[in-house]
Design a protein around this nucleic acid. Sequence first.
DNA 1: GCAATGACGCTCT
DNA 2: CAGAGCGCCATTG
Length: 118
Amino acid sequence: MSGMKVSEPYARIYAVVKRIPAGRVATYGQVAALAGLAGAARQVGYALNATPRGIRIPWQRVVNAQGTVSRRADPDDEIRQRRLLEAEGVRFDPRGRIPLDRYRWKPRGTPRAEDDLF
DNA sequence: GCAATGACGCTCT
DNA sequence: CAGAGCGCCATTG
């Protein structure tokens, strides 16, 4: 076993990301809130970047609030993330954006904005 | 323990 | 609608 112990906040973040179904995406802020760390969106990205080797989580399903793949030090990772998502059926528009209205993950129990219209 | 870092978000221009 | 600026907060050196 690795001697690296994951901090509680990170463990909760990983737990939330693991729940995101294939073909859906969640924003950093959304994951933070669901992990009980509202306002700590940056830490989500930081945590994913520091994901220990060995544990596999669908990190590609986390995007920014604009529905785009966040800029990364290594541009190759941006391409890799986009391809993984497209392989799951997530469509990008011509400007490289994912329509969050359509692909955002809505956890069971979360009130939908559309329902307020009825 | 303080200062810098970072796969972010919201607001104002 | 795109870009710039400031705020946030856990982890690291």
